[in-house]
């Protein structure tokens, strides 16, 4: 009891520091963190899948749905409240994930990955064909309001960041709860041996379906937050390279802890922006090289660097 209290305190402190960072860091860094946390939510969903040995090359589907919900709700329904948009976008991507889940939950390994990819690419194709929504150019998203509060300029950047931070924390907490539930404990068991899990009287397909839905909802929320931060949506959000980037970050981060996706995402954004600045002609090579080194030398992601100092089994349980 005492121990979990201590852990809770630690995370609360971390959250407070991150919230304070919104006021202390320069604006570009706040924006970068905002974007990193939004994308971190998508990666958090991938973590749920990856713990079962599943990887999706199509999370961009939900990410894009979330983004376009923000754009289209503003355009056609005149909805600009961040809370409403977040609920709306998450709900819609959750609904789509329920449908897609019926199809993909049967598959494993690369087939799972490719089928997910196919769905995201179909959405991409539809959006490219929709000239009313600007085709590949996309369109701008209006400034969000927060329960009637309509900040501007620097205040907007900070409030938007705090909103994303709160949503990310909620997402991380949800996944943490999920992983501690019976269904959650099955994640690694399914990866290790599906048939035995079935013998336990659990529907593996149902369990995987639940993961697809959870991951989809998280990716949708990430898309909403990212669209609010960037202020623009375009079909690129659904393109396979976007999905590839999320998978990249998942591996970079490791699956040791629900905080890992956010840390990995922030490091990735930093890495990329500095690669852009210092090696504008070879930034892809820098990213690719980093990924290779990570896979070779840090097979369990960045998080393994941190958890190695503690007793390994107990930290695993913490997540």
């Amino acid at each position: 009891m005492n121990r979990s209290y201590q852990i809770a305190l630690r995370y609360a402190a971390a959250l407070a520091v991150l919230a304070a960072a919104g006021f202390l860091l320069p604006q570009w860094a706040v924006f970068l963190l905002n974007l990193a946390l939004s994308k971190g939510l998508v990666v958090l969903g991938l973590l749920v899948l990856w713990r079962t040995g599943l990887i999706s090359f199509g999370q961009a589907l939900y990410f894009c749905i979330g983004g376009y919900v923000v754009g289209m709700a503003g355009l056609y329904l005149d909805l600009h409240d961040a809370f409403v948009l977040l609920a709306f976008g998450t709900a819609l991507s959750l609904a789509v994930a329920v449908l897609v889940g019926f199809l993909v939950a049967r598959y494993r390994q690369i087939f799972f990955a490719m089928l997910s990819l196919a769905f995201s690419m179909i959405l991409y194709g539809v959006l490219v064909k929709t000239e009313a929504l600007g085709s590949t150019d996309g369109f701008n998203v209006g400034r969000p309001t927060f329960l009637g509060y309509a900040p501007e300029g620097e205040a907007l950047a900070i409030v938007s960041y705090l909103f994303t931070l709160a949503a990310s924390a909620a997402g991380a907490f949800t996944v943490w709860l999920y992983l501690r539930s019976t269904l959650g404990h099955l994640t690694t068991a399914i990866r290790d041996n599906e048939v035995r899990v079935e013998y336990l009287g659990v529907s593996v397909r149902g369990a995987i379906h639940a993961k697809v839905v959870l991951a989809g909802a998280l990716a949708g929320a990430g898309g909403v937050l990212s669209a609010l931060a960037v202020g623009h949506v375009d079909p690129e959000m659904a393109y396979w390279t976007t999905s590839g980037e999320f998978v990249f970050v998942t591996i970079l981060a490791g699956t040791g802890n629900v905080v890992a996706p956010f840390l990995g995402s922030a490091l990735f954004e930093l890495l990329r922006t500095y690669a852009f600045q210092y090696t504008p002609y070879t930034w892809q090579m820098v990213l690719g090289g980093t990924l290779l080194l990570l896979i070779l030398f840090l097979p369990d992601g960045i998080w393994s660097l941190l958890s190695r100092r503690k007793a390994a089994p107990s930290t695993r349980r913490e997540a």
């Binding site: 990887i55 690369i110 930034w283 892809q284 690719g288 990924l291 097979p299």
Partner: peptide, 16 residues
């Protein structure tokens, strides 16, 4: 899937 990512990394390097 990790091997897919290795080839993805190789792809990024080869592109440049």
């Amino acid at each position: 899937v990790i091997i897919v990512l290795v080839t993805y990394a190789a792809f990024l390097v080869l592109e440049d």
